[in-house]
Design a protein around this nucleic acid. Structure first.
Length: 594
RNA sequence: CGGGGUGUAGCUUAGCCUGGUAGAGCGCUACGUUCGGGACGUAGAGGCCGAGAGUUCGAAUCUCUCCACCCCGACCA
């Protein structure tokens, strides 16, 4: 057991000026963290206890899911990255680590980077250490610090430059086995987040920089979350907006027949969808084609959307470019012969002067709903009408590129999709052989054939999860820790530490609670009761036992759950056994998955 | 990387527009009175006003540069 007077819990009455959201304010006010710089935090003693609770649960569940814990360096020889498949993408978020010596760095000194994740380390390790199918499957994980030079760190631990993460990497002999491993980890994640005591949803997600076949994100619903999740209560469908699909275009939709010959018309000064929608042209956005130009691996390509749809840029990842970005107006003019605002992809208006310059014309399925519409003429100040999707547009292929909106039909059951925001606390990817092929991480199978290992990778934001729990579980007075992750489960609030009788009762109760399996903190500070109660609510210990002169005169102590208003008066004689029962019940009721 | 905002005691901040060398609350120290929901009184300690340069007799205040932090955006033609 710990005594508050001997521990260190620097609570604050006021919120720090740089904290915006409730969980960030409470992290600081409750003395869980202190800021060093932007996105850099010291985990104070109380906060570290929560981190330890979370990592312990994480270990137990990842172990149960087949994980084997190891520990890799945070300082990576840069060669591991330059030889990998995503150096150009990942280097932007990486910190370079040089010797701090004054002028002592020799030109030939090895270069290091601080690890933002560890595929580039674990895959070469697997290559040298795993050579036979008999060694597979394997799933390695670590719980350690990650370094990422986030463009904009914010909200305390929510997006930090240095943070604590569980990262796991699975290696399998074939795709089917890798899927099994993936599903096993998905189940482990569900057990883990359930045990944390947070509400969460697993959603289909974009694979982003990781690459690979498919992935799920674990989201804690919260207004302050960075991610939009579209979900359906009917079918259980849930996906990150970057990935979400909808049944907006009916499967049996017949393509519209042309309604006349393509006709050019003058639109001086009109360069936006909205301007074309206004008088005198009065073309509804839903009857326009939006033509966007991107550069993919150095070559321009076109994306066509409905005028009233938005591009979901992450979906362009499906096109297979390593790197893509919006084209600049300077890049567009030489390719299409017109400035942005008059662009289109009608056959015959493209490819002037150089048709082979384009890497493709990719159309969103939803433009089929437009059927016949208006698009740019690739001639400044002119548009084309009666443009028919099937007849006139030079489409390489169709795909899903638009951003799905709330209320669109669920792709599974057709009911309207709902939208909510969430904090991403976990992400799992089935990687395939992207990394193993690059690093030549192969094994020999039973037929003596050399084959690349099939990988998966898995991450849990440990420090972010701590904050997500607070965001989801707090009130006006402070944090309300779930039983399983509370820094202490029982707070023995000794109102009069000078009173020998009260002190002795407190010791006995603390010992009983500890005996029953709780971590106990005794507030033995020389403070007024009001200060102690306020602090108790702020730091959010689930069960508070109050021992005060008033109660002792009646022969009772008080027991109160942080999450509830009611307060129970328990006779001193039975208090120890009652408290022990409460603790055992709390463990009994703690959320878990069999 | 672009836009906006803020930097004054450990924390929250006033003062800045209109220049005259800094004030409050919390916290801290000592003493006294209090003592079941952040008590009160008295007396204290604590600030090169983010850094540098400039203007001026004189700069927290005006000008310039830099730095840090916070917010918004990162793309849609």
């Amino acid at each position: 057991m710990n005594h508050w007077s001997q521990f260190f819990i620097p609570t604050l009455k006021e919120s720090p000026a740089d904290a915006e959201i409730a969980s960030h304010k409470l992290l600081v006010r409750a003395g869980l963290v202190r800021k060093l710089g932007g996105g850099l935090y010291t985990h104070m003693p109380l906060g570290l206890r929560v981190i330890h609770k979370i990592t312990q649960i994480c270990r137990e569940e990842i172990n149960a899911g087949g994980g084997i814990e190891l520990w890799m360096p945070h300082l990576h020889p840069v060669e591991n990255w330059t030889e990998g498949p995503r150096w150009n993408l990942a280097r932007e978020i990486m910190f370079r680590a040089d010797s701090a010596g004054a002028g002592k760095r020799a030109p030939a000194e090895p270069e290091f980077v601080l690890g933002p994740t560890h595929e580039e380390i674990i895959t070469p390790l697997a290559k040298t250490e795993i050579t036979s199918y008999r060694d597979l499957p394997k799933n390695f994980y670590q719980i350690s610090t990650k370094f990422r030079n986030e463009i904009r760190p914010r909200y305390g631990l929510m997006r930090a430059r240095e943070f604590i993460m569980m990262d796991a990497y699975s290696f399998d002999a074939d795709d089917a086995a890798a899927t099994q491993n993936y599903l096993r980890m998905k189940a482990a994640y569900e057990r883990f987040f359930t045990r944390l005591g947070v509400q969460f949803i697993a959603v289909e997600a974009d694979t982003g920089v990781m690459g690979g076949n498919f992935s799920h994100e674990f989201m804690v619903p919260a207004e302050v979350g960075d991610n939009d999740v579209l979900y359906c209560d009917e079918s259980g469908y849930a996906a990150n907006r970057e990935k979400a699909a909808s049944a907006l275009v009916p499967a049996d939709l017949a393509d519209a027949a042309p309604d006349g010959a393509v006709e050019e018309f003058a639109t001086p000064g009109v360069t936006t969808i909205a301007q074309l929608e206004a008088a005198p042209h009065s073309v509804p956005a839903g009857s326009q084609f939006k033509t966007l130009i991107y550069i993919g691996d150095g070559k321009p390509f076109i994306v066509i959307l409905r005028g009233n749809d938005e591009l979901e840029e992450a979906k362009l990842g499906a096109l297979g470019f390593n790197l893509f970005r919006p084209a600049t107006p300077e890049e567009i003019v030489p390719v299409l012969g017109a400035k942005p605002g008059s662009l289109g992809a009608v056959r015959g208006t493209l490819g002037n002067p150089n048709p082979t310059a384009l890497a493709g014309v990719f159309a969103d399925h939803a433009i089929r709903l437009v059927g016949n519409g208006v698009t740019g003429a690739n001639k400044d100040g002119f548009h084309l009408r009666h443009v028919n999707v099937a007849r006139d547009l030079a489409i390489t292929r169709f795909g899903d590129f638009r951003r799905v909106r709330e209320g669109e039909p669920c792709p599974v059951c057709g009911k309207p999709l709902k939208l909510r925001r969430g904090i991403e606390v976990g992400h799992i990817f089935k990687l395939g052989t992207k990394y193993s092929e690059r690093y030549n991480a192969v094994y020999t199978d039973a037929q003596k054939q050399s084959r690349p290992m099939v990988m998966g990778c898995y991450g849990i934001g440990v420090s972010r999860s701590m904050q997500a729990i607070i965001e989801q579980s707090h009130d006006a007075d402070g944090i309300i820790w779930p039983w399983t992750v509370a820094p202490f489960q029982v707070l023995v609030c000794l109102l009069d530490p000078q009173n020998e009788e009260a002190k002795s009762v407190a010791q006995k109760l603390a010992a009983a609670a500890e005996q029953a399996g709780a971590d106990v903190l005794i507030d033995d500070r020389e403070e007024r009761p009001g200060v102690k109660f306020k602090d108790a609510d702020l730091i959010g210990i689930p069960l508070r036992v109050t021992i005060g002169g008033k109660g002792l005169k009646e022969g009772v102590v008080e027991m109160k759950w942080r999450a509830e208003k009611e307060l129970a008066k328990v006779p001193v004689g039975v208090a120890e056994s009652h408290l022990a029962t409460l603790v055992r019940d709390a463990w009994e009721k703690a959320p878990r998955v069999k």
